[in-house]
C-alpha cells in the first residue's frame, strides 16, 4: 500500500479541563475520501484546526507530504499543498467571486514568488485569471464571477470555498462540511463533484449529511468526545455496535 498523504499520530488538545481531542491518529491515503463523522461537540473542528495549523496540539504529530508539519504555520502547510474549505465561509465578502478565486491562484503562485506584485492588474487576462476561472467553471460558478460574494446563497458560498481550494492544485483537501446549507439538489451535485475529485487529491471530509458521507466515503472515522472510537469501511461502521450506540442511533 502507498504511503498516506496526510497522517496524524496521537493528537491531543485540551482547553482547560475539556479534552477536545484525545490521542487521535488517522491517515489519508492517495485516491480516497476519508470521512470524519461525530455528534456536535465531538472535536471535529479542533481536529481540523490542528491539521491545518490554526491550533497547536498539546501532544502528537501531524505529517503531510512526507514531512512533519506539526510546527509549521497555516500558510506553510498551504504551500505544501494542503487545501482547506471552511465550515463557516471565510471568504472576502466585499469582493467579487472572481477576486476570491484569484486570491487562491495568487497564493498558489505566491509559494514561489513571495510577495504578490504591487503593480499590475490582478484580474487582467493571464495565468491568475485562467486558473481562477477554470476553478469557478468546475464548481459551476463561472456565470457569477462578477457577483459580490455577500450576494451569494449559502450553497454557492460553499461552492466558492471549494473553487478557492481547487485553485491551489493541492495534494490533499480538508473539507469542513462542504454540503452545509445546500438544498437536496445542490448537495447531490456537490456529492457527484467530490466523487470525481478524489482522483486528483484525497479528501478528508467532515460532514453531517449522512447520505453524502455514505455515498462518498472509502473509509469512515467516528469521533466521539475527542476520541476516534472506530475507523473502517462504510459497512464496517454501520455494523459497529459502539458507533450505533454513540452516534448513528440518535440520527436513524
Amino acid at each position: 500500500m502507498t504511503d498516506p498523504v496526510l497522517a496524524t499520530k496521537g493528537l491531543t488538545k485540551s482547553f482547560g479541563a475539556v479534552r477536545a481531542c484525545h490521542d487521535v491518529s488517522l491517515d489519508l491515503r492517495p485516491g480516497e475520501i476519508h470521512a470524519v463523522i461525530g455528534p456536535n461537540g465531538a472535536g471535529k473542528s479542533t481536529l481540523i484546526a490542528q491539521i491545518c495549523g490554526g491550533l497547536k496540539p498539546d501532544a502528537g504529530r501531524v505529517s503531510f507530504a512526507g514531512r512533519d508539519v506539526t510546527h509549521l504555520p497555516t500558510r506553510a502547510r498551504a504551500r505544501l499543498g494542503l487545501a482547506r474549505t471552511f465550515q463557516i465561509s471565510a471568504l472576502a465578502m466585499e469582493d467579487t467571486v472572481l477576486q476570491n478565486a484569484t486570491l487562491g491562484a495568487l497564493g498558489a503562485k505566491g509559494a514561489r514568488a513571495g510577495l504578490p506584485g504591487l503593480l499590475g492588474d490582478a484580474l487582467a487576462p493571464g495565468d491568475l485569471r485562467d486558473t481562477a476561472m477554470a476553478a469557478l467553471e468546475r464548481v459551476g460558478l463561472a456565470e457569477h464571477a462578477a457577483t459580490v460574494t455577500s450576494a451569494l446563497s449559502h450553497g454557492q458560498r460553499r461552492q466558492l470555498e471549494v473553487a478557492v481550494a481547487l485553485t491551489l492544485r493541492p495534494r490533499a483537501f480538508i473539507m469542513d462540511e462542504p454540503m452545509a446549507g445546500m438544498g437536496t439538489e445542490g448537495s447531490q451535485r456537490m456529492t457527484a463533484f467530490l466523487d470525481g475529485l478524489r482522483d486528483e487529491a484525497p479528501i478528508l471530509l467532515v460532514e453531517h449529511d449522512m447520505d453524502a458521507v455514505f455515498a462518498l466515503a472509502d473509509r469512515l472515522s467516528v469521533l466521539v468526545y475527542g476520541r476516534i472510537i472506530a475507523t473502517g469501511s462504510v459497512d464496517e461502521i454501520r455494523a459497529n455496535a459502539d458507533v450505533r450506540k454513540a452516534y448513528l442511533g440518535e440520527d436513524a
Binding site: L103, G107, P116
Partner: peptide, 27 residues
C-alpha cells in the same frame, strides 16, 4: 494601481478574512 494589483487584492482580503489569506499560503 495598488488597489487593483495582486498585492492589493491579497491585502484587501487579509482585512476581511485573515484566515482565508493564510489558508491559501500567503502571510
Amino acid at each position: 494601481r495598488l488597489v487593483r494589483s495582486p498585492f492589493g487584492l491579497a491585502l484587501n482580503a487579509a482585512r476581511q478574512s485573515p484566515e482565508r489569506v493564510e489558508t491559501v499560503g500567503l502571510g
